[in-house]
Amino acid sequence: MTRFVFSTTLRDLLRPQRLIAWLAVVGMVFVISKVWAVLAADLTGADSFGRVYQAVVLRVVALASAVFATMVLSQEVEQQTIVYLITRPVPRRTLMFGRMLAAAVVSFGVGFLSLFAAGFAVLGLGFFSSPSLIVDVLVLAVGVMAYIGFFVFLSLTISRSLIISLLFAFGWETFVPNMPGDMFYVSILTYLRSAAPEAVMAAGPSLGDVITGALAPKSVSAGLSWVILSLLVVGLWTLCLWWFSRFEYSPREEGE
């Protein structure tokens, strides 16, 4: 049953209009990366790519995760079509897991294409022989899973969660890693940055450093980041499945 829920959700998420919009986003990543590489000519190719990866690719992952996570449940509740799903003999956790998995796969697809677009724009064909490629892809995958878990949980607990999710993806995740003290610990991006091989160290208070979250000292080890990201994924996904099985998600009528 999980497979059927997963495949139908995947088909819904990959409808042509949506696909075109996300391919346009990938195209924009390519253009932005190319411009970035030209403007940061004093940096090495690897440094340039590291910055683009953290400033653009990981943000696209957060954006895609926020949008697709909203489609897992929030959109069904708002359109009232949730009623057809929750009155079928399918355990709610199966329903939620299949849909979350589909959202994660699509978000990862967007992130993966963005990674290649950015890499090709900055490093050219040399990107494909980059030693960090596999780790970059793994970071993307874990990042997507963590973001999907978090954004789906938001959509389970608050209505109209897309706005809050986008604020988190672009507000919280931009400013919290730059904050002094220990605030950077409460950002998913911090751990993604730390787990990624392209470490971006503080270079100065430029806009690029703010966007990449490079103003704060990077004090989380790669190993610890992987552990925390793994715990986040397992914890958030388990929480989402439990929450959806436990609480009501019935469209409410105006008259009641």
Partner: peptide
Amino acid sequence: ANPEVYKRIGYCPDIDSFPEH
């Protein structure tokens, strides 16, 4: 949220919403 019950009930809601695509 009981699948055992849902196997034996059919529900036609009053809402006019569908997956329109």
